[in-house]
Each structure stands twice: as structure tokens, then as C-alpha cells.
Computed example of a mutant assay.
Amino acid sequence: MLTISEFGRRAGLSHKALRLYDVSGLLAPAAVDPISGYRRYDEEQLERARRISVLRQVEMPLATISEVLAGTDEEALIRLDRWWAAQQATNEARQATVEYLRDRLLRAGSPGLSPRPVLQRDVPETKLASIRVDVDQQSLMGVIVASTLEIRAHLTAAGASLPGGSWVIYHGAVTPESEATVEICVPFGGTVDPAGPIGIRIEPAHTAAYCTISRDECVYPRIMLAYDLVEDWVRTSGRPTTGPIREIYHPGFRERTGSDPAVDIAQPIEGLS
């Protein structure tokens, strides 16, 4: 058994951190003296403590650390990879936003989005798996990536077929200052049961007005110009909307770059009778 000082020294954690991890349930001491309140730790707890220390160095939240360390090492690796992919996506989105702003400052008066048509198409009934989550603009891309990976892993484990692509339905306005509910959706074929946050449902057949944007044009706030384009078309056409607007990610979205077509901004509308 090790004192809190010895354990903290060997694990690379302060007394304050160890007390926090005890209160949060992340790393409880092996024993606590009922009279003095002194904490004692077992040497076997050092590996878990060191993993927590490393994960905190990369700014992983305590709740996420608890999820990562909850199962086997194989499960921990999967959760770690998903979290890191989400962090990378968030950082890429921030970098793209800064680059967009720099471009606008350097080329004042230039159009933020080149002209393009708004088209219509009929979308068939689709079986999909989805996760709903409340999110703000800052964490949006990370949540989309992490949720998509989680859904695809669940579908693959269940033996479902994946035609490719995914979409995000916006059930409210996501801004840098406020959260709203988004639904990350992945279409599939086969029979799959819901699990945890993953629900299974049928997306009804519908007509959609949409425009396509490139990988570079996906950055916020540039992407909002495509939303304006679609919304203006719908308003001018007089066609009632029949569902919330969505971003439809083309298959292989993560590998697309520059001017490659990558996303459709789509608004379900009432079809022509």
C-alpha cells in the first residue's frame, strides 16, 4: 500500500488531482483510514493512474476518460481513437474558419461563394441509424465525426450493409453562442437493433431542393452562404418545407479536398402534384 504522496509521485499526479479523481469516481483509493482520513493506494492502481495522467495532458474531459477506461484495453483503444478523430476534426474546422476569415480580409468585396444552381431531386424512403445530440458550433464537427464513427461501428458489428455517405439534420439553429439538437444519420441495409444513444428509424421519401458545395466551402461561416442560397430558392419558389434542413456528406467526405464536391445542403420541400 502506498501513501497519497508516494502514489502521486510515482503516478505523476498531485494531491489535488487525486482527490478530484476520488470524488469523481475515476480513481478511488484502495483504503481510507476511518479516523485520520488518510488515503492509501495499491501499487496495481499505478497503471490506471498513469493512463489518467496521460489523457489529462491531452485535455480529455474526466467523463470521457471514465468511458475510455471503463472496459478492456481493446475497447479503450477504440474509444480513444474516436475521441482523437473528433479532436482533429474540430481543430481542422477551426483552422479552416481562420483561413476563410484571412481570405475575406485580404480580398474584401470578393464573393464568398461562387454562383451555382439549386436543384431538385426525389429521395426514396431510407432506413437509417442515428444519434441525436445537443451541440454548439465549436464542438459540432467533432461530435459529427465521433457519432458517425460510433454508428458505423455498430452497424458493421451487426452485419449491416453500408451504401456510403451520411447526413446531419439540424433540428434547431446551431451557433457559436447557443446549442441546438442535431441528428447524425447513417443509412444502412439489413436488420439492426438500437443500442445506447443509437436509434433506428425510417426516413420517409421526400422531395428536396439542394445545392452542392466543395470541401473548402464547408467551413463555417462560409457554409452559411449555401444555406442562404437554398433558403432563398425555396422562399422564391413558394414550395412549403416538409422537414428540417440538412447537410448530406458525400461518400469519402474525409478524403475529399479543395474544390472536390463534398456536401449537399438540402431542404425537404413539398413535391409537385
Rank of each mutant, 00 (worst) to 15 (best):
L27M: 04
R235H: 11
R121H: 02
I144K: 04
E150P: 01
T64Q: 14
D228A: 15
R51M: 07
A158E: 12
E231K: 14
H206E: 07
T156L: 11
V23H: 11
V135A: 10
P204Q: 01
Y21L: 01
I131L: 06
V182G: 06
G112D: 05
R39T: 02
V54K: 12
A266E: 01
V135L: 07
A28H: 09
R239Y: 00
E150W: 02
L272V: 12
P117M: 08
A173S: 11
M1L: 11
Q57S: 11
I144H: 08
D136N: 15
V143E: 11
R9I: 05
T3L: 06
R239K: 13
T242F: 00
R222C: 08
L225Y: 06
C211K: 00
A266M: 02
L162F: 03
R51G: 09
R254P: 00
P268Q: 09
I78N: 10
A262H: 08
R48W: 01
D228M: 12
P261E: 07
Y100L: 11
Y100P: 07
V219M: 11
D33Q: 10
Q87L: 03
I248F: 04
L69F: 04
R246I: 00
W233Q: 07
V219A: 15
A49L: 01
R9Y: 00
T175S: 14
I200R: 05
T242C: 05
W83G: 06
P111S: 08
V192C: 08
L55R: 04
G165T: 09
I200G: 03
S53L: 04
V182I: 15
D122H: 12
R104I: 09
S139K: 13
V123F: 01
T175D: 10
D232K: 15
T148G: 14
R132M: 09
T181A: 13
S161Y: 09
E99P: 04
P240I: 03
D33G: 06
Q87K: 10
T241P: 04
S161I: 13
A208R: 09
A96D: 06
D73T: 12
A153G: 10
E217K: 05
D193M: 12
A157V: 02
H250F: 14
E231Y: 13
R48C: 00
V182K: 11
A157H: 12
A108T: 11
I245P: 00
C211T: 15
L272N: 13
I269W: 03
G37F: 01
R256A: 10
L69Y: 02
T175E: 11
L106G: 14
E44R: 14
V133Q: 13
A195N: 12
G109T: 05
A86Q: 01
A262K: 04
